[in-house]
Design a protein around this nucleic acid. Structure first.
Lengths: 236, 236
DNA sequence: CTATTTTAGCGTCAACGAGACACGCATTGT
DNA sequence: ACAATGCGTGTCTCGTTGACGCTAAAATAG
């Protein structure tokens, strides 16, 4: 760690009192934990590293923050580059910056997570490169850097938010059945929920709107299709 | 999006074999929102700016992250420099990094907040400089940069955490009465609480330990002194 | 066309937690 | 002793949560 960096005393000569060019600057990246429900599982998109360090291991996709780009824009850019999708739920998770977390240099990474509607994702599902893949959050490969810690924290966070926000809807297409919604909850919380209590609770909040349509699938009674009604203002 | 940047050949290559020395790097600071209960009020420590930009306005104390220092260590250092206290509750709040939030240059700031025991604080209460001061979170002066936004977010966050964590104890000395604890809750939530319900709720959790001692103050019946019992493992 | 299979959809009861609410108790000062 | 002050306590109601089993509607197989 703390290798001798080539410092750029570049653009900002205008700094008045404190002069930041005196300081050796860390690099700043954004990493984006992109998750989706796939194969009845909570999965995350990872990329395989091609070079040192951690060559051959899997990592959370990320990259440098451009100098004129907001952190969120950088995260959106990563998201677009990896999945092609836009307008997804994206939220800042935490910033990891221990010296030594990257053996090459000091890197501070601002981590975002994204929840992807599995349906819209199909479009680009066939990613060309074999060095990009979806993995179960419950059965991860060996991960580069401190990425295992980051994913553990991500899971903890979305579990917490599941209960008092509407983030679950971001993992479903516009229309969905109550059972599908329940499955999202079950997969993230990693435990079975009672069907009747779940329906009662969700419906009582009024955040669902009956579309009138039904979804027929398999050899059984068809299910009503609902849609999320954002008019209900749960706390963020 | 359109980043008209000079740098970056293929924004993607960086993810794998990145050569950071090619990129213009943002500066990284930590800001620390130090809060304490003073004069029956939730107050925050601010410093007055002496120079451009926002000269004369108040700001959250902060500074550059040293190249070999973790973010949390940097926050602790700030805390120590401003208040002289150590071993306080410190938690990362959020990272703010919009380009343009600092007119001098691109600054990404990782914000921490600290909750200070008002008693231990007395020690250094008489801060020499008149350009450091405590302000009510409910009656803030005009603030530099995006610091008003940061404080608003801080308040929102500690209110949320108050309900399912034990952060309130960090604002009190080791021993305290139930009434004092209730006042901390009332001040942060900014509303009156029912005394009996509050006592019932807190005591039922078992996180308080009766010290046996009593606190006599004023012309009335003395109050029992309690101490926080960390053996109760509420979720973080 | 009948039977079987499969999931959708629904109601009750018990336990618990949250919130509203009023008065005697222990101390100090006069 | 008595006035003033804040400490300390219990009950009831109401809404929420969780446990629990049966009928309904469709498809398929025979």
């Amino acid at each position: 760690m703390s290798s001798g960096q080539s410092q750029t005393p570049s653009a900002e000569a205008q700094a008045h009192h404190y002069d930041p060019s005196k300081y050796e600057r860390p690099s700043v990246t954004v990493d984006v934990v992109m998750m989706s429900i796939r194969q009845s599982d909570l999965q995350v998109l990872l990329v395989k590293r091609r070079s040192w360090p951690y060559e051959g291991m899997w990592a959370i996709p990320g990259g440098f923050v451009h100098i004129d780009e907001s952190l969120e824009d950088a995260a959106k850019r990563e998201l677009r580059e990896e999945t092609g999708v836009q307008d997804v739920y994206l939220e800042q998770l935490y910033t990891f910056g221990d010296p030594g977390r990257d053996p090459r240099m000091r890197v501070i990474t601002v981590v975002y997570y994204a929840l992807l509607d599995s349906e819209r994702l199909q479009v680009r599902a066939a990613d060309d490169a074999s060095d990009v893949g979806w993995f179960s959050m419950y059965n991860l490969p060996e991960l580069a850097f401190d990425h295992a810690e980051i994913l553990a924290y991500t899971l903890q966070r979305i579990r917490g938010k599941l209960e008092y926000t509407t983030i679950a809807f971001n993992l479903l297409p516009e229309q969905f059945t109550l059972r599908e919604l329940q499955r999202v909850y079950e997969i993230i919380l990693h435990r079975k929920l009672d069907k009747r209590n779940f329906r009662k609770k969700i419906l009582s909040t009024g955040i669902l709107e009956d579309t009138g349509a039904k979804k027929m699938e398999g050899t059984h009674r068809p299910a009503r299709l609902y849609r999320f009604n954002p008019a209900a203002v749960a706390r963020q």
